[in-house]
Design a binder for these strands. Sequence first.
DNA 1: GAGCACTGC
Length: 732
Amino acid sequence: MSGQVSYSSEACKLPIYQFKKELVKAVKDNIFLVVTGETGSGKTTQLPQYLYHAGLSKGGKIVVTQPRRVAAITVAQRVSQEMGLRLGDEVGYQVRFDDCTSKNTMIKYVTDGCMLREILADPVLTQYSVVILDEAHERSLNTDILIGLLKKTKGASHGRSVPLKVVVMSATLETEKLSAFLGHCPVFSIPGRTFPVTEKFLNLIGPKDTESSLYIKEVVKVALDVHTNERAGDILVFLTGQSEIQKACDMLFQKAEAIDYRYDVNDSSVEGLLILPLYGAMPTDQQKQIFQPPPEGIRKCVVATNIAATSLTINGIKYIVDSGFVKQLNHSPRVGMDILEVVPISKSEAQQRAGRAGRTSAGKCFRIYSKDFWEKCMPEYTIPEIQRTSLTAVILTLKCLGVHDVIRFPYLDRPEERLILTALKQLYQYDAIDRRGQVTSLGKLMVEFPLHPGLTRALLKAAALECEDLMLPVAAMLSVENIFIRPGQPETQKEAEQKHRQIASEAGSCNDFAMLLNVFEKCKASDSPSAWCRENWIHWRAVKSALSVDTQLRVILHRLKQQGVIEKEKWDSNRSEVFRRCLCLGYFTNVARRSIGKSFCTMDGHGSTVHIHPSSVLFGMESQLDWVIFHDVLATSRMFVRTVCPIRYDWVKDLLPKLHEVDVYELSSVAREEVTEEEVAKWESREAAKRQAESSEDASKKLEKRNDEGSITEARARYLQRKQERQQGKKL
DNA sequence: GAGCACTGC
């Protein structure tokens, strides 16, 4: 069969082509195989074709996973085109909201998240013969879990006629480790086809210079230096976020002016230099401009976040200016929360950034930091996601896949036990697992939803109480990117704030969750949702994806309802109160109580001090509040909680003891299946004692009246009035 | 009275 297949001349020129026979043989001979090759080797597009033509798809499809949706889609497009086939026929892709496959599909590109969902539905992966995990070096949470799961099944699951073949593809980094992990399987290396990149340390930043204003200044200087001194070729500058990028772009204009460049507002260019910001939250039409080649004789300078490191490839980049920093979400065990912070990048990440200059020709990478900074501040590798994020959802997935002992699961890099225990504790608190660590019937329902387990918990309760129409949009809005536009200009900023306040005041009740619901509903009901968003300073793209998520959640919920697994309940209170009480079930781990002044104290055992973020509709009303729940935390000048809702102590009173009744030691034995009846009895008596202590506490009584709905609305009205008066006072 | 990197189901 393979003899008759012809490949295009372009495909034959790819470095991988000369290894075709050996690669096919290696896959045939082994259950596990590691394939390494730099960008441009052709491994992602060619290997699946080789296997297909060699008849390996006879026993089932060949599936290739990608960490990103765009990658899955564009690669599938390219491969179907190369093979002269219609996309969705023999070659297809599947990502969330978009399944472009058919019965004929033999080569399927999917996101790693989709693959995990498929394993959940069919753990033996009956319809596949080969699974290829691509971009394994990126160490995405889902890919890491997939590697562990596939190692565990070892290809030889029952219910399969032939064992499943597993190929793990990675850049040259850490392939020994991958091979060792997969039972010292063979490693197949394919040379890449990239160009050399000269790397220079400019010594402008030392180990102590972590002020953002410092490194912004330096990258700007370097970018202008490159522009004046280096030959033609575009520049890519790496910074950490939107505001830094805006500052740097402004400075580029100003500096350019100072050294006698022409500054043209209309085309955002100084003489010969086109300055383009690039970050994820930017409108898509503005992003498109980035990919167009600059006009003749003009040099492009893209100032970007890490989005340009993997997600987007810009052609023509010859120079990199690397700040050495990145914004990263890290879990802080000390406060028990996730914190978004600016940290030095790893050495491997720096190499990745440099590599962006060598895609089309030889390039140069200018690192503003010193060799000292490199040695002292930058770790060898980026800590994989699995070791620094909440594992709650992942652990539930594993448990549902029958991986009971989640501590001894074969992790490529084992997360700290503490992180796993925190996840178990949360799942226990959500009633997703029982004391023995077994998945409950509720947990089995929860795993169906593509949401954080806490939010799912709230949603399922809302469904039982028949007020899911309130919770579904909120869950959807909370699981998409930022909804509210915050313009840089002070004038427009005020206007945006005004619009947002207006929407908040029209919401049924005064909290940030209700405001999200109101945005969703107002937007959906308007004649032109996109125009409505523009007028109200709302990201239409985000609301649009929330609409899709809402639909997806409705479909899942509908299915579960038809199965009759959601038991109806009735609470004796109004809809708004039912809604907030449902939220409590999902967020009682995020409860805070007001302490001194405007500060709040978290009740999760860490007792951290937090403040309400100024973007919250409850900001400025702290004195009227006592107990609140919140969606997330932002650690900047202070620890801020965002998306906040006032609650009554009554609603969480019975839930709070659950936060303390399981200690780490106990859960670790739960996790290890070593729990005895005796231990269970011990917990129960201790729990009873704690409950008693809790109920004797009388602090709650006087608080309840204050947090009632009407009083908050009134208080808010008073606050806004005072504020308006103050502003008018200033003007006079 | 602050200002949110990037993915994914």
